[in-house]
């Protein structure tokens, strides 16, 4: 790792830790930093502080960090795989595909009867993760097939449109599912880190950790793919196998995020650009930790803003991410040399 990359990693970790600590101290009830630290370390603190920090705020903060990191890494993989600077799990409709997968499963269970619903409730973690994974994988395969035929910008537009379609279908399905007795917690359709229960955290973290390992394992070959398929083959890369491996890594990274946090927008699209600017290279391996940390920082910042002690709770995560993210994407589309080439 170059000095530039390791310094950036260290600075980002410090920033993330500071922001996480800050986010734990405020909310409906403000807690002094000392109480928060006390609750975290298990030393002298009140029961109330411990409950607020450990049971309510920490799972949310952890979910934001894990999900943001996963989306950042998935963005790096997808932008390299599609050789498209505006590709990510959200913009190409993978998140919406995953949502549709979850919605279909919940609806099917609701109409199958109470036994199916209670089965789904009992095994909520694995079942909705698998449902989301199926949806994400189908959406990813469809986009990969399309990506070889259409240009980068066309692919982006198609991805967004398919995303809207899937989200529309999801909301219709969930409406009928609710009437038949199937439920998924509120806020999920809009993206939120607040709905992740402490016991669901492993279901979020473990697949993402596996996905991160897969991403690291494919990083070297994926770097060659930046030169195009033929050059990658001339450098000894088995391109079809690589594509499948990257796709598997992406599904592992993205499916748990969809299942537990909903369609978190823009994070995966922006984090890779941030990482490339910091690293000064497009090689995949150094980008992965930087994009993970950048994504985590962005997701946690969004969460910190919506949970700031406003008079009333009025902000949605995706609203914040869109206000920050959309202008960045517009700038990328206008100024990125890579995009200029595609027009």
């Amino acid at each position: 790792m170059s000095a530039r990359v390791s310094t950036s990693v260290a600075v980002l970790i410090a920033a993330l830790a500071a922001l996480a600590l800050l986010t734990l101290t405020y909310g409906q009830i403000a807690l002094p930093l000392a109480d928060t630290l006390g609750a975290l370390t298990g030393r002298q603190s009140t029961d109330l502080a411990r409950q607020i920090v450990l049971d309510i705020r920490l799972p949310r903060v952890a979910a934001a960090i894990i999900a943001g990191g996963a989306l950042g890494m998935a963005g790096v993989l997808m932008q390299a795989l599609f050789r498209n600077p505006v590709a990510d799990a959200w913009s190409l409709g993978l998140l919406a595909g995953g949502q549709l997968g979850v919605a279909l499963t919940v609806t099917a269970a609701a109409f199958a009867g109470p036994a199916a619903v209670s089965f789904l409730t009992l095994f909520e973690g694995p079942s909705i993760t698998l449902a989301a994974a199926a949806g994400v994988a189908i959406a990813a395969l469809a986009m990969l097939a399309l990506g070889r035929r259409v240009g980068a910008i066309t692919l982006l537009v198609i991805g967004l449109m398919l995303g809207f379609t899937s989200q529309g279908l999801t909301s219709v399905l969930l409406h009928f599912a609710a009437r038949a007795g199937g439920r998924i917690y509120g806020g999920w359709q809009d993206a939120s880190f607040a709905g992740v229960a402490p016991e669901a955290l492993p279901w979020l973290a473990v697949p993402i950790l596996l996905g991160a390992c897969a991403a690291v394992a494919t990083a070297k070959s994926l770097s060659s793919l930046l030169l195009g398929e033929t050059y990658a083959r001339s450098l000894g890369v088995r391109v079809t196998a690589l594509r499948h491996a990257v796709l598997a890594a992406t599904v592992l990274l993205v499916a748990p995020v969809v299942a537990f946090c909903g369609p978190v927008s823009f994070v995966g699209l922006i984090a890779p650009h941030f990482a490339r600017a910091l690293a000064g290279t497009a090689r995949i391996l150094p980008l992965l930790p930087l994009a993970a940390l950048g994504g985590a920082l962005l997701a946690l910042s969004g969460d910190a803003i919506i949970h700031a002690p406003w008079e009333q709770h009025f902000l949605h995560l995706n609203a914040i991410l869109a206000i920050v993210g959309a202008p960045v994407v517009i700038l990328i589309l206008i100024f990125s040399p890579a995009v200029r080439q595609w027009r």
């Binding site: 932008q79 390299a80 050789r83 498209n84 600077p85 980068a152 770097s223 060659s224 930046l226 030169l227 195009g228 050059y231 450098l235 650009h273 490339r276 000064g280 290279t281 497009a282 090689r283 990125s336 890579a338 080439q341 595609w342």
Partner: peptide
């Protein structure tokens, strides 16, 4: 081929 963010030294190092 189009290569998002790839710099010349990266291209040569990939060899």
């Amino acid at each position: 081929q189009f290569n998002p963010g790839l710099r010349v030294d990266d291209v040569i190092a990939l060899a």
